[in-house]
Design a binder for these strands. Structure first.
Lengths: 302, 302
DNA sequence: TCGAATTGATACTCACGAGGCATCAATAAA
DNA sequence: TTTATTGATGCCTCGTGAGTATCAATTCGA
């Protein structure tokens, strides 16, 4: 038993001391603790020598606390209570009945599945607190890797191996135009029609895979997009469209709620496809809170 | 080792776990703790089975915390720190460098030695908090007996055996008169001169010994005092004198500061003698705070 | 692709010390 | 005085923490 990192007393000593201090009687305390009185006497003596201070005054016929003893009693009482609850507490965390869960998400998730999942989770596991973090797919992947988030709603196309994921939705992008734009009068558009329209997209590093896929769709349609701005989060793009800066691509779910000044139009033919998946670390030991979240997400989807 | 009152883990386990959780490495943690790695492995396993929850995920090559493990780490950290300080803390209390000290006192003490002692104590032991309680000698004796106060400034004549005490002062009483009283023109008085003067004294039960001694002084002087009021604390007697109700006996120190409307006159011949002593419980195990207080009181007197 | 190094777990033995029983010394109550 | 009750001490037993040697699984380097 090494000396340097060793406390010279143990929880047992504190519990023994508490009982003696409460009853001020060795024999009764020993009985209450279920040990023999001599053993108790020695353990208390051990504790006193370990802390280097007399905690009790024994006068053969009466036992009383010293000031240090009283101080110790008052100090350990709350801790012993907390310690007693500890196993149940840890179990609750492991079972996912409580805990903090950091979750990454994109605007699309918030516009579609996320609210329902959170509501379901709140219903089944009210003890779990979710810390939401809107960030682009690339950032979420990094956060997943480092453990900063336990799971993320992201575009799964560039998901590396070692992560589990569940596809949530896949939608062909449409276009958001200023309401007074000439093309807005048409019911549907082709990407080809938008050759001359200035575009607001998102920064490439947010999600290189999807960015490149978007440009591919344009070239497939035989045009090169005129990109005037890159912005994130995507919702901000709507503001720019509204200000007349240009148009932006967006999937129907995300464009469900739009201000009057802008219009959403479906695109026929080639168009990028927004995908949303819930991804999490492939470790075998999913945190309980994460499992609860996944369960809530599954429930939402069935 | 009885089951009912036994935690299934000890402080040692928590310290071991903390080190492993910090370093996320059994071998290095074992080295840092000064134990062999196998022992550490088993202690951690023991802790996990004791709390009934996995705290670490071992993947042969890497160790990481489960959510429960992280929770445990965060919870025990502050407590282990506190626990480490505990011996020094208890020692400080035992040595009287800190703690709470309840002290009884009378008006005479506050008018004389008490302020100086408190100042000295504050200088030498700033960690000690003193709880002052003005009460008559008889009440203080009871409080000493029950442990409500650790020491008291009181009239020592009726001090029972089993208490230590240190005499602080002894003063012949004088008389406090209304300033416009005919007798106030004399420089000194005899108790005999005050035969017809109505007197304000204190309730007998406050200090029966001194009360009786006072009456003895009167009869020695050949008079019976005309007592019109008994009041406590003594300082209030001055207010009654001021209102013209009568005169009161008082020692010079206590009568040092008087309003203009009253006058203090020394008494020659028989007169009661106010004594002040610091008394404390004769137990062998004086609390450290008490010892510090006594030391400050001694310093004040030398 | 294969061997070397590194990881934490397991098997075995040893020794410290907590626990139990019997008993003592000191005090209080009869 | 006797008797009962208090906490402390002596001695023995046995559980368990710790050490050494070793294993199985994985990673890394060539």
């Amino acid at each position: 038993m090494p000396r340097e990192y060793q406390f010279d007393f143990e929880i047992r000593h504190l519990i023994y001391f508490r009982e003696v201090a409460r009853l001020l009687h060795f024999r009764r305390a020993a009985e209450s603790l279920g040990v023999a009185q001599p053993s108790l006497s020695r353990q208390i003596a051990h504790l006193e020598s370990a802390v280097g201070t007399a905690l009790l005054v024994r006068s053969q016929r009466r036992v009383e606390l010293t000031p240090a003893g009283r101080h110790l009693l008052e100090n350990i009482e709350p801790w012993l209570r907390q310690l007693k609850r500890l196993p149940a507490e840890l179990d609750a965390i492991a079972q996912g009945e409580t805990g903090i869960l950091r979750v990454g998400f994109t605007g699309l998730a918030m516009a579609t599945v996320l609210p329902g999942i959170l509501r379901e989770l709140q219903r089944t596991h009210p003890g779990i607190r979710v810390e939401l973090n809107e960030s682009p797919t690339a950032t979420q992947l990094e956060a997943l890797r480092s453990g900063d988030i336990a799971c993320g709603f992201l575009h799964p196309d560039s998901l590396p191996k070692g992560y589990h994921h569940r596809m949530l939705l896949s939608e062909r992008n449409g276009v958001v135009l200023p309401a007074d734009h000439p093309l807005a009068r048409r019911k549907t558009l082709k990407l080809h029609d938008l050759a001359k329209v200035p575009f607001v997209l998102f920064p490439r590093y947010n999600n290189p895979t999807f960015y490149d896929r978007t440009l591919s769709a344009f070239s497939e349609a035989g045009v090169t997009p005129h990109i005037v701005e890159e912005i994130w989060p995507r919702a901000n793009a709507i503001g720019l469209v509204r200000s007349g800066l240009g148009a932006t691509l967006m999937c129907p779910s995300e464009a469900k709620i739009l201000p009057d000044e802008v219009t959403f139009r479906r695109i026929t033919g080639p168009t990028p496809e927004s995908r949303l998946a819930l991804a999490w670390h492939g470790g075998a030991h999913g945190s309980g809170a994460l499992n609860a979240f996944l369960q809530a997400a599954g429930h939402r989807l069935n």
